[in-house]
């Protein structure tokens, strides 16, 4: 396939996804290499979040195989979840949340080490939320909250990030900032896999596109190839007509 560079980190072969034996999507094949920026596109309910959860090992695939290679293990992936309502009244400071990204590193030790705290502080600095560190998470703006969760994900893993709709609910300015931030991280060498509804941004920033349709994969390959294929144009026209 053209445009692949670097060592493969994640290989999905003939993956089927679903819940309780009911298949949501099948025949999913793709390879993510070091430094790639993969965008997963698809309609609501096509199984994007399910794919993310399967990649993270939160649920088992119905069929097929996920291979981790190139020095990536199951726990080496930082995860930014699609926003959930449960945490709306959660009393937690920004710092407590970002520190909790180091949870896997500290094993059975009951407290965080100096190095782990330093890492968390560094990530907060990188994402420009150092001044917020003592603030309460639930009182932040949507964009600030996403930065906090991104900082937490970066504490957990510095090689690969899985982002499930990181810009949903943000205003256009915050969306643009978030995309720039993710792009910067990607340029620093972090592999990015992102779920998105935003055709324009996806094709602008991503190096590769995975498009999931009803029940099956419609396209996987480089962004250039996607723009030339019919799949992309149909989705783009739909997106344009929906958005305005």
């Amino acid at each position: 396939m053209s445009g692949q560079r670097g060592t493969p980190q994640l290989i999905c072969e003939d993956l089927s996804l679903g819940y309780d034996g009911e298949t949501v999507a099948e025949n999913i094949n793709f390879t993510v290499c070091e430094g790639n920026y993969l965008c997963i596109l698809g309609e609501n309910g096509s199984g994007k979040s399910t794919l993310i959860k399967t990649l993270l090992g939160l649920k088992k695939p119905i069929g097929g195989e996920i291979k981790h290679c190139g020095g990536i293990k199951q726990g080496d992936i930082g995860y930014l979840p699609q926003q959930t309502a449960v945490q709306k009244d959660f009393p937690a400071s920004v710092r407590e949340i970002v520190y909790s990204g180091c949870i896997a590193k500290c094993g059975l030790r009951p407290f965080y080490s100096k190095a782990e705290k330093a890492l968390a502080d560094e990530m907060m600095g990188k994402l420009g939320i150092t001044e917020l560190s003592r603030r309460c998470y639930r009182e932040l703006s949507g964009g600030q909250q996403q930065r906090v969760l991104l900082a937490r994900a970066l504490c957990a893993a510095q090689k690969m990030l899985l982002l499930d709709e990181p810009v949903t609910g943000l205003d256009p300015k915050a969306q643009a900032d978030m995309y720039e931030l993710i792009s910067t991280l990607n340029n620093e060498g972090i592999t990015v896999i992102m779920v998105s509804h935003d055709f324009a941004a996806a094709t602008h920033y991503a190096s590769h596109i995975l498009h999931i349709g009803a029940h099956t994969q419609l396209y996987y390959g480089t962004t250039e190839g996607y723009l030339e294929s019919g799949v992309g144009t149909a989705f783009a026209e739909r997106a344009v007509s929906e958005n305005g």
């Binding site: 090992g57 930082g78 909790s100 990204g101 896997a104 009951p110 407290f111």
Partner: peptide, 23 residues
Amino acid sequence: FLLFYHKIFAVTFDENFVRASGV
């Protein structure tokens, strides 16, 4: 409670994240 304080916090705040990071 004191030994597991940070884990209890993490599991309470976001169980999926904790599981995803291999804990």
